[in-house]
Design a binder for these strands. Structure first.
Lengths: 139, 139
DNA sequence: GCCATATGTAACCATTATAGTTCCCAATTA
DNA sequence: TAATTGGGAACTATAATGGTTACATATGGC
C-alpha cells in the first residue's frame, strides 16, 4: 500500500469512534476495523489530536474520542490535518533562461488555486455526522 | 522529485509546443525548458499522443506538434491522459466483520465523487489557449 | 546509400512517501 | 504492583515517480 489513503483511513477511523460517540476507543479496536496496524492508527490520530479533532487518554480504559460533536467536524478539517500539500504538485525546477518556463509556475499556480476553490467548499459542507448518518445503527 | 508533477509538466510541455504552434519541437528542446531529461518528456508526450492531443514524427526535422488548435485542448483532456486515478485513494482492505468497515467504501466513494463533480467542470472550462494567452508573445 | 537527427521503448538505478513492524517509555486504572 | 493504553523512535518493505543509458526504428538531406 503505497497509495495515499491517509484521508480515507482518517475518516474511517473517525467513523468508528463516532459510531459510539460516548465511549473511548483503543487504537487496537480501530485498527481491527481498518485492517491495519495499531501504530498506523495512533500516528494518524496523533495528527488529528494536534488539530483538535480527537482527544486521547493514556492507560487502562484509555483510548480516543471526538473532541467535539460529529456534526461540528468538517471533512475539510480532517483533510487539512492529514494531507500536506494541495491536490497537484508544482515542479520545483525550470529553465530560467526560457520565457515560457519563467511564467509557468505562476500560470499553473493560478489553475490549481481555481480548482481548489471549488474543492474546499465541498469538503467544508460535509461533516463527520453526514458520514455516520449513512451507517447502520449500532446494535 | 517523487511528488506527482506529471500534470504540471504535461501542461508546461504543451505550452512550449503551443508557443510556436506551427513548428515541430524536439523532446530535447522541451526538456531544456522543463529542466528534465528528454526521455521523461517523450514518455509523457507518448501518453498525450495516444490520447490524440499531440502528434509526433520520427527522424530529422521530426518532433512534436499539437494534434488540434490549443483552444480545443482542454486541461481536463490533459489531466485525464496523464493521471491515473482520482484525487483521493480508497484503501483496498477492510474488516468484513465490522459493520462500519463494510459501509465505508461506498460512503467514501460518494464523498470523492461529489468532490470530483466540482473539479472536472473547472478543468473542462480551461484550455491550453488560456494558458498560452498568459505567456509573452514569441520574439 | 550514408549519416545525422529524432521518436519509442526497454532496462535499470535513485529518491521519496507511505505503510507496516518492533520496541520501549509514560500514564492511568484497578 | 500489574495490566492496559497512547507516544514515539527506529527500522524495513513496497510502490510511484523521476532520471539515465542504450538501442531499435524512422526520416530527411547530402
Amino acid at each position: 500500500m503505497a497509495a495515499n489513503s491517509r484521508f480515507a483511513v482518517a475518516v474511517h477511523a473517525l467513523a468508528v469512534i463516532a459510531w459510539h460517540e460516548d465511549a473511548r476507543h483503543s487504537s487496537r479496536e480501530i485498527a481491527s476495523s481498518v485492517a491495519t496496524n495499531p501504530v498506523v492508527i495512533r500516528r494518524l490520530l496523533a495528527q488529528l489530536s494536534r488539530a483538535g479533532i480527537v482527544e486521547s487518554a493514556h492507560g487502562a480504559k484509555g483510548g480516543f474520542r471526538l473532541a467535539r460533536p460529529a456534526g461540528k467536524i468538517r471533512l475539510y478539517d480532517v483533510y487539512a490535518a492529514v494531507e500536506e500539500g494541495g491536490f497537484f504538485a508544482l515542479p520545483e525546477k525550470g529553465n530560467d533562461q526560457c520565457p515560457v518556463s519563467c511564467r509557468m509556475k505562476a500560470i499553473l499556480d493560478g489553475v490549481f488555486k481555481r480548482v481548489e476553490s471549488k474543492v474546499v467548499p465541498e469538503l467544508k459542507r460535509a461533516t463527520l455526522a453526514d458520514v455516520v448518518g449513512q451507517l447502520p445503527r449500532p446494535a
